[in-house]
Amino acid sequence: MKTIATFHVNGQEYDTVIEPHMVLADILRDNLNLTGTKRACSGGNCGACTVLVNGRPTCSCITLGMLARDKDIETVEGLASTKNGLSTLQTAFVQNNAAQCGFCTSGMLMTAEALLRENPQPTRQEVKIAISGNICRCTGYIKIVDAIMEAVSTLQTINNHNEKA
């Protein structure tokens, strides 16, 4: 039973033909060509497929597309902008070499993005808890946590600067 569904992804509206058994990760990758979101365990265990649905980290591999219609979806493609380039979080990941094979990176970035929006000054422990649902098979967790903490301090400096200005 094919239907035309509307998805709000990264501030844009997409109309696409989907079937009820399609999960969000497949729709993003195959229908909308947003391949930054990765498919890995397909069981909601590894977090590589994390996207933000209404601002909350969600495993897109076990979310039916039908349930994500008409909700605000953000993928890793939405973090960078054409005007400013990579986001502060992405820059921190690059500078800290926080990606080895890079397969978990998009999920890590989206989870960290949600954390920093909710809690702009997390402790190292809070960061570890937040990304506990994202598995890095290269076990590069220390650099990932370092990168997120660096992004926290950079964002704080920017905020202080803006307040003074």
Partner: peptide, 9 residues
């Protein structure tokens, strides 16, 4: 809950 994302879904 593990993974924490489950709480949102």
């Amino acid at each position: 809950l593990y993974p924490p994302h489950i709480g949102n879904m």
